[in-house]
Amino acid sequence: MTSIADEKELLDNSSFDSNTKTIHVLVALCDNKYQGIVPVPAKIGNGQDPANNLYWGCAYGIRSYFKNSSKWQLLKRFSIDSVKMERVVFKHKVSGYYLVADAYNGKNIKDCTVDFLQSCSGKMKDSLNVNGTSIGINGNAMLLSYIGHDGLMDFKLTEKFINTDGRSRDAIILACYSKNYFAPYLQQTRTRPLVWSTHLMSPEAYTLHDAIESYIKKEPAENIRSSAAKAYSKYQKCSEKAAKGLLVFGY
């Protein structure tokens, strides 16, 4: 874990180096108590405990899976506040892409959803100082991802998410029925959906990990979706055809 001084440095919101490329992942921690989900075992369904959470600290959670990946190097890990409970910063060993992932308290799933959409619209922008390099996060990132329960199945948003800067960002949304529930909001932002779902799904990290590998290589959306589907098929032990029916791209 980093020191308080490091945390202040990393939370700097000044301008960023436009030569850097960043992927920002917003994770709503799995929460049996505060989310409308089919309950999982109590230890991994505690949305206030990132270390043991299904979508974060477990083997297929974002933090653990990327930390154990041979493709990525963990640079920073620190706490922010009671809403964003932990942040990790990785760097891709070949391309130099940065990946920033935030673990949102499970009871703050609505905040996580709104922050994701505001970032997609360009309304919410920030930067992060990582070892002397200022990188863009939120709306300054190239690719944004939401991971977790689809809270839009439980609540409606009154906010508008109209694109504010003319930029078209990319997005991967791994949550149940995410295409159906996120599309009305995402279309306002002018964001390009590279992978999202048509049915119930398990939003574990291997799907995002392999999709990102294709994204970094600048492969077309179909290839990015295919990489995601192959990973999902492998770990969920379903056919690749079924996985491609579940994980789709575009509107």
Rank of each mutant, 00 (worst) to 15 (best):
M1L: 13
M1G: 13
I4E: 12
A5N: 15
E7N: 09
K8H: 09
E9P: 04
E9Q: 15
L10I: 08
N13V: 07
S14W: 03
F16D: 03
D17M: 08
S18R: 15
T20Y: 04
K21H: 14
K21V: 10
I23Q: 01
A28D: 07
A28Y: 03
C30D: 09
C30T: 12
D31H: 08
D31Q: 10
N32D: 03
N32T: 05
Q35Y: 04
G36E: 08
I37Q: 06
V40A: 10
P41W: 09
K43Y: 11
G45F: 04
N46M: 09
N46A: 14
D49G: 01
P50C: 12
P50F: 11
A51V: 14
N53A: 00
L54S: 01
Y55I: 05
G57F: 05
G57Y: 07
G57R: 01
C58H: 11
I62Y: 07
R63C: 08
F66S: 07
F66L: 15
W72T: 09
W72H: 10
Q73Y: 00
Q73R: 12
L75D: 06
L75E: 12
F78I: 03
D81C: 09
S82I: 10
S82M: 08
V83Q: 12
K84Q: 15
E86K: 10
V88M: 13
K91L: 06
V94N: 13
V94M: 10
G96K: 04
Y98C: 00
A101K: 07
D102R: 07
G106W: 10
N108M: 14
T113I: 09
V114N: 05
L117W: 02
K125N: 11
S127W: 05
N129K: 14
N129Q: 14
V130Y: 05
N131P: 04
S134T: 06
S134D: 10
I135E: 03
I137L: 02
I137N: 01
N138K: 12
G139Y: 00
A141W: 01
M142Q: 14
L143Y: 07
I147D: 04
I147L: 10
H149G: 11
G151R: 08
D154N: 09
D154W: 05
F155E: 03
F155T: 08
F155Y: 15
L157I: 06
K160F: 06
F161S: 00
F161Y: 05
I162N: 11
T164Q: 15
R169G: 04
D170C: 08
I172L: 01
A175Y: 07
C176H: 08
Y177M: 10
K179V: 05
K179R: 15
Y181R: 12
F182I: 05
A183E: 14
Y185I: 02
L186P: 02
L186F: 02
Q188L: 03
T189Y: 03
R190Q: 14
R190C: 11
P193N: 02
P193K: 01
P193A: 08
L194E: 06
L194W: 03
S197N: 12
H199C: 04
M201K: 06
A205N: 02
Y206K: 09
H209R: 12
D210V: 08
E219Y: 09
E219T: 06
P220M: 06
P220S: 04
I224D: 01
R225T: 02
S227R: 06
A228P: 09
A229D: 06
K230N: 11
Y232F: 08
K237Y: 14
E240C: 09
K241I: 13
A242S: 15
A242Q: 15
G245M: 04
L247W: 01
F249T: 09
G250S: 10
G250T: 12
Y251T: 00
Y251I: 00
